[in-house]
Design a protein around this nucleic acid. Structure first.
Length: 573
DNA sequence: GCCGTTTTCGGCCCGACTGTTTTCAGTCG
């Protein structure tokens, strides 16, 4: 069985960790990490790329050796170089890297001296005091390590964007309204609208930093003040979200914002371009020798490098710099361009509001249309509709439309894709609907081949319009089901099926990477909320964030169209 | 281990902070 891209990326990351602890050439370590990132960012599985006979060395950061390594991993499921390293050094050492304050050098020291390979052994040596015999280990560090061991289970935890957002925005206005504060921006992955954020990086331009920091650490939702320094202060909020506040000089604002917005890979690329011009970019500005020649705004930095401005959502080193150079950056879709919502539930099944209430809430948002897409009969827990009740609902919608002004309700269904790939309702009724979403709600654990065959077969049904939450993943809870995405994309093209970006913040499915591939393949997308109540129509924002991260433009999204255009697009053939 | 219009060797982003030192290594973002 071929390994997935993320499994291969994990292998390379583990390889990098082990090499680092071994003390290998740091650039070799970096090469493995770069390769892991490249693999993770691919929209197509490596095994299918190999099957197609693609030269893997064409991928950035993959050279002769790594291409062979990938081939070996795909063929055998194992990586002999990693296996060999594990014989030299026990597995588990790389887990210690997650402890704050412990890096490769100190882990090596601990292993060489005490043969420490686990958190338990580490705690023992730290508590007994033996650890102090090592050079460079003082009381503060040891305390930090012990704390890290206790927190190890939580390590690596990231917060969903929607969870972090209220804290970010509350802090933003809390700081903005303090006297002497000139500029506030929440940078980092939050500004890039990533689906999860590790922490919040807030930049502040202020006349009196000391007083701003005092104000900051007095914020009521803070659990712990970690540090309070002359340029930076770190706190932990009650929900364990870490917030870094950074003082920035006015003239450095652009370069600081760029630096702290990231991503790291994007920044490295930009800095390399500066080097080629004989400049240096850091968080304080653009420099020629000692002389500052720019950095007040991000726009200026990009302009100096001969680049068009790159939106934060694109800054992942997924081709945006090249696209910018060549003047082919996408004009990213905006929330304002959305004219309707194509995945909405009502209290006919598991929704909490009537169709009218949903329609009026949508109208209040300025939409022209919504599609009511309740569940089909197989989903009994949600009171799924059988043909009879669906026909009743269709009639009710027709009547409702006669009384509604300024918004149209489309008749739809979120139809279960059964295990054999057939749809959960008869053709006779599906034919009469305005829109048919197909979705998988059970049997998530079929083999890749079976699951792909199941979904492709369903998509071949002539009424099938949109594949809803295509991969089934739930952020932090459930992985995507095994699926050959190449085959799914192919079927989308052949059958004129659109893919959904489900805007539920725990789904955001398709993800950004697949959304970009879908775009490149010429596939249409529907950004839809799957709302079960009027408030959830606001989730559209998260779906649009993901669409923007997937490089999508207005034209590629069904629900930016007028009702007339949309209806034409939904009619196949 | 990758990469290349200064190309097959010799570079590889850049700086701050912390804790430990007494001038700096290690870690982090």
């Amino acid at each position: 069985m071929a390994l997935s891209n993320s499994e291969i990326a994990d292998i390379f990351n583990q390889m990098a960790d082990m090499l680092e602890i071994k003390g290998e050439n740091p650039f070799k370590v970096r090469a493995y990490r770069n390769a892991a990132r490249t693999v993770q960012n691919l929209g197509k599985s490596l095994d299918s790329l190999m099957e197609e006979g693609m030269e893997l060395t064409k991928l950035p950061g993959i050279g002769h050796d790594l291409a062979e390594s990938i081939a070996e991993i795909i063929e055998t499921g194992k990586f002999s170089k990693l296996e060999a390293l594990k014989k030299e050094m026990p597995e588990g050492l790389d887990k210690l890297l997650s402890i704050e304050g412990l890096g490769p050098k100190r882990i090596r020291q601990l292993y060489d001296t005490f043969h420490i390979t686990s958190l338990e052994e580490l705690a023992k040596v730290a508590e007994s005091g033996e650890i102090y015999t090592l050079k460079g280990f003082g009381p503060k560090l040891v305390e930090k390590i012990l704390k890290g061991v206790r927190l190890a289970k939580k390590a690596g935890h990231r917060f969903r964007f929607d969870v972090a957002k209220p804290f970010a925005e509350e802090l933003r206005s809390y700081l903005e309204n303090f006297e002497g504060v000139i500029d506030v921006e929440v940078a980092g992955s939050y500004r890039r609208k990533k689906e999860t954020v590790g922490d919040l990086d807030i930049l502040v331009v202020a006349e009196n930093w000391e007083r701003v920091v005092d104000w900051f650490v007095a914020f009521e939702k803070i659990k712990e003040v970690v540090s309070k320094g002359p340029t930076r202060s770190t706190v932990i909020l009650r929900n364990d979200l870490q917030v870094d506040l950074r003082s920035v000089a006015k003239e450095s604002y652009g370069s600081a914002l760029h630096y702290f917005t990231g991503s790291k890979a994007h920044n490295i690329k930009i800095r390399k371009m500066a080097i080629e011009k004989g400049w240096k970019i850091n968080e304080y500005g653009v420099f020629q020798g000692e002389r500052r020649i720019g950095g007040e705004t991000e726009e200026q930095i990009y302009r100096m490098l001969g680049l068009r401005y790159i939106e934060p959502e694109l800054r992942e080193d997924r081709g945006e710099v090249e696209a910018s150079l060549e003047g082919r950056l996408p004009k990213l879709v905006t929330l304002e361009e959305v004219r309707g919502d194509l995945h909405v539930h009502s209290n006919w099944t598991d929704g909490h509001a009537s169709i009218r209430e949903m329609a009026e809430a949508a109208k209040a948002k300025g939409y022209d249309y919504i599609a009511i897409t309740d569940h089909s009969r197989h989903l009994t827990v949600a009171k799924g509709l059988d043909e009879k009740r669906l026909r009743e609902q269709m009639e009710a919608i027709d009547k409702l439309n006669e009384t509604l002004d300024g918004i149209t309700v489309l008749k739809g269904i979120e139809c279960d894709i059964l295990e054999d790939g057939s749809l959960d309702l008869p053709d006779s009724v599906l034919n009469e609907l305005d829109i048919v979403l197909g979705a998988v709600h059970y049997k998530f654990n079929l083999s890749k081949k079976e699951q792909t065959r199941r979904i492709v077969k369903a998509m071949q049904h002539p009424c099938f319009n949109v594949l809803a939450h295509p991969t089934g993943r739930i952020i932090g809870h459930r992985n995507a089901y095994e699926l050959d995405m190449g085959e799914i994309f192919k079927a989308c093209k052949n059958e004129q099926v659109a893919l959904e970006i489900n805007a539920q913040p725990e789904r955001l499915d398709l993800n950004d990477i697949y959304a970009k591939v879908a775009k490149e393949e010429g596939i249409k997308l529907s950004v839809a909320t799957d709302a079960h109540d009027p408030m959830s129509l606001d989730f559209m924002e998260y779906g649009i964030n993901q669409a923007r991260r997937g490089w999508l433009e207005k034209e590629e999204i069904l629900n930016t169209r007028t009702l007339k255009q949309l209806k034409a697009l939904l009619k196949k053939g």
